[in-house]
Structures are given as structure tokens and as C-alpha cells.
């Protein structure tokens, strides 16, 4: 995550000192991605070095107030208008774990999938609970609610992917067991599906 750009974007609102920046950041994003104040000051030092922000003055309590420069404004504008790169997906432990579970002998892949689905479902329930309470339309509350939506959609996508893995594995197992017959269904699953539909 680009702490540098997030802090610059906040400074564009108004000059602030380190603790203020952290508080403003967390008001918008919750504590989903906690920032420690040391990280904030290191980043501010770097922003100053690169000419994107200026340590301007000290307030009465001795806080060093930072202000964005013109170059900093250009940097923020570029950040907002440039899509986040998707060329190098972050290493996904779950995808790697499943890829290995499928190939390593003796691993019960079905259990791996179900345990993960339960854990992700649990997280999704937590996000949804928080979302139910975040109903305000003030910008900061809306920002937090949208961050929650992002977590909700990601968790949902993971569960859908797990469902997909499970059905592909089942189909593959059936095909391996009966390589010559029609690879469509087991004797039980098709009538059960038809039956469930007929109750609708």
C-alpha cells in the first residue's frame, strides 16, 4: 500500500502533523491497515527529501506541521488518475496452499477447502456486522463503509473461488473414476438437483 500517496492526499486537505495524519487516515479506513506513527514520520521525512512536502512550522505544543508542495499536488493528482497496477498479483497463500494440497498425496483437499470457507465466512460475517452499523452519509463514515465493502467483496470472491475449486475437484474425481462413461453426473446428484429445483 502506498503510505506516501495516502499521506500526501491528506496533506492536500490541510497542513497537519504526524499524529493528526495517522488519525485522519484511520478515520477513513478503520484500523484495517494500521499505521504506526514512526512509519508516518519516516514517510514525511522522505516526502520532504523528494520536495513533495515541507516541514513548515511548529505549533504551540511543538508539533511539526507539514504542508504539501506544488510538486506534491501533481504527485497526488497522478496517483488518483493512475490505476493500481494488477500486473504483479501479491503472493496468495491460499492459492498456493490449494495448488499444493491438490498435488501432494494424502492431503484431504475437501477439508482444506471447507475449513477455509468457514474461516472466510466468519470474517465476512464480522465485516457485515460492522457494515450494518456504518450507515452514515458523512464523507469519513462513507469512506470507512466503502473500505468494508471492499473487504466484503474480496471475502465473497474467495468463497466463490473455493466453491468453484470444490466442484471442479468433484468433477475431476468422477472423471478419473469412470474415464470411459459420460462425465456429467453421479447417479445421486442429478436427481437431487432436479428435485430441489422442483420445490421452488
Amino acid at each position: 500500500m502506498s503510505v506516501k500517496h495516502a499521506l500526501l492526499a491528506l496533506l492536500e486537505q490541510e497542513p497537519m502533523y504526524g499524529y493528526q495524519l495517522r488519525a485522519e487516515f484511520e478515520q477513513r479506513t478503520g484500523t484495517t491497515w494500521p499505521l504506526n506513527v514512526g512509519q508516518v514520520y519516516t514517510t514525511l521525512t522522505r516526502l520532504e527529501r523528494d520536495g513533495l512536502a515541507l516541514a513548515e512550522s511548529e505549533d504551540a505544543e511543538g508539533h511539526v506541521i507539514y504542508r504539501i508542495t506544488d510538486a506534491g499536488r501533481v504527485e497526488v493528482a497522478t496517483w488518483f488518475t493512475t490505476p493500481v497496477a494488477r500486473t504483479q498479483p501479491p503472493r496468495d497463500e491460499l492459492a498456493i496452499k490449494l495448488a499444493l494440497a491438490v498435488t501432494v498425496p494424502g492431503v484431504d483437499v475437501g477439508t482444506v477447502i471447507q475449513q477455509q470457507r468457514s474461516a472466510t465466512m466468519h470474517a465476512l460475517q464480522d465485516y457485515t456486522r460492522l457494515k450494518r452499523r456504518a450507515t452514515g452519509s458523512e464523507p469519513a463514515e462513507l469512506a470507512w463503509s466503502l473500505v468494508l465493502d471492499s473487504l466484503v467483496f474480496a471475502a465473497e470472491a474467495e468463497i466463490r473461488w473455493l466453491d468453484h475449486c470444490e466442484s471442479r475437484l468433484r468433477r475431476a474425481a468422477i472423471e478419473r473414476a469412470a474415464p470411459t462413461s459420460a462425465p456429467t453426473s453421479t447417479p445421486t446428484s442429478a436427481p437431487a438437483a432436479a428435485n430441489e429445483r422442483s420445490h421452488r
Binding site: 479506513t29 478503520g30 466468519h122 460475517q125 464480522d126 460492522l130 452499523r133 456504518a134 469519513a140 470507512w144
Partner: peptide, 13 residues
């Protein structure tokens, strides 16, 4: 089955 208890993954602002 997943239960209802929260795992405190994150907190509100």
C-alpha cells in the same frame, strides 16, 4: 457451521 462470536479482525474507526 460458523458461529456468531466475533474474532476482532478489525475495529471501527
Amino acid at each position: 457451521e460458523t458461529g456468531a462470536e466475533s474474532v476482532d479482525l478489525l475495529t471501527e474507526p
